[in-house]
Simulated scan of single mutants.
Amino acid sequence: MEFIRQTEVIQWVDGECRKIKENSVDDEYTYLFIDYLPPRKFSTYPVDLKDFAVGYCLGEGLIKDYSDIESITLDGTNILVSTNLNHDPEEDLEQEGIVQERKGNCEHACVCRLLEYQGVNSDNAGGIRSELKTIEPNRSDLRVSATQIIRDIQHLTDEAKIWQKTAGVHVAQLKYEDNIIIREDVSRHVAVDKVIGAAAKAGYDFSKCYISYSGRMPADMLIKVIRVGIPIIISNASPASSGIDVARSGNITMVGFVRDNRFTVFTAPERIDFEK
């Protein structure tokens, strides 16, 4: 099912006006409930939501492996995830730098703080994103050729069906050997979560995978990639300096500005075969 809405609009071209029908993404709010943690709110293109839930949990370090998930249930656009780790709200309080003491006004203040940020959007509707306290360099020996990078971005564009109809979504593509997974979403984070989740469900070796996607590459995107162990990220857009710093620390190969027949490698160039 495609969540696309058609609206009658006025288009102006070279001084002439005309009425046309324009497609737009019919995005919806999605709430993600993980064990006993507060709900997390996202604006999504509401398909492949189970893939998103798995990818989000992996990218945020809430699980170490797909097998940590006991069940995923969809109730409309609400996603209920049960893990064998039984997370509780204190973990989120610790992430926010809040120490919960179970006495007097402090407990009341902490509960109020929890309620304040339940369902609050951040990172362009990417939900609550956690920091990475330590970075282990990625040791993957995966290599990709220069010509393959160009082909990957072209394939990403060719297969972006919702983007072609609306220009209102981001597209992510994960490649593992001869297997390719493509997902689209209004949030670049959620699009990447979806391909990571689908790959985890398929049992792919993340050290042999790489991601191509449409969107900037700031630190929070690189943190997700580092957590799951993917060594290469490719985009037709630019990196942020924070993303470059994290990629360098994590020995992640970051390729940006893939356009026409050119690209720029910002970190770990040894994984790129420039001769092909």
Rank of each mutant, 00 (worst) to 15 (best):
G250V: 04
K224L: 09
C209R: 01
M217D: 01
A191G: 11
G215N: 10
S235R: 08
S249T: 09
M221W: 00
A219T: 06
V190P: 01
Y210L: 08
V192P: 00
M217H: 08
M254L: 15
I234W: 01
S249Y: 06
I234H: 04
I233P: 00
V246S: 05
G229E: 06
I223C: 11
S241N: 13
Y210Q: 06
T253W: 05
R248A: 13
A247D: 07
N261V: 09
A191F: 03
V255S: 08
A199D: 01
Y210G: 02
V228E: 00
S207N: 13
Y213R: 05
R216F: 09
K201R: 14
A199G: 13
P218K: 11
I226M: 10
V190I: 14
M254G: 10
G256A: 10
A237L: 12
D220A: 11
S242W: 06
P218G: 14
I232A: 07
V258H: 04
N236Q: 11
D193V: 04
V228Y: 01
V192L: 03
D220S: 15
K201W: 00
R259T: 13
I233Y: 07
S242E: 12
R188Q: 12
S241V: 10
V255N: 06
V192M: 04
I244W: 05
H189D: 09
A191E: 05
K194T: 00
R248Y: 08
K208Y: 03
D260Q: 14
H189S: 12
Y210W: 12
I252H: 03
R188K: 15
T253D: 09
A191V: 08
A237C: 14
S212Y: 04
A240L: 14
S212N: 14
R259I: 07
K224A: 08
S214W: 01
V192C: 02
D245K: 14
R188C: 11
P231I: 07
A200S: 15
A219Y: 09
V192F: 00
R216S: 15
G203L: 07
S212M: 12
G256Q: 05
Y210M: 06
G243A: 11
G215H: 10
S241W: 11
I232Q: 03
V258G: 02
I234Q: 00
Y204N: 10
A191S: 15
K201Q: 14
N261R: 14
D245N: 13
I211V: 15
S238M: 11
D245F: 11
K208D: 11
K208P: 01
S212P: 07
V190D: 00
R227C: 02
A219I: 05
P239V: 08
G250T: 04
I233W: 05
K194E: 04
L222H: 08
M254C: 12
A240M: 14
R188N: 13
G256P: 03
M254S: 12
A240Q: 13
K224S: 10
R248V: 05
D205Q: 11
S242C: 10
S249I: 01
A219G: 09
S207R: 10
I226D: 02
V195P: 01
V225A: 10
S235A: 13
V258S: 06
V228M: 07
I233A: 15
V255F: 09
G256E: 08
S212T: 15
S238G: 12
V225N: 05
V246K: 05
A200Q: 03
R216H: 14
N251L: 07
I244N: 09
K194M: 14
D193I: 02
F257M: 10
G197A: 00
F206A: 04
V228A: 07
G229F: 04
I223R: 14
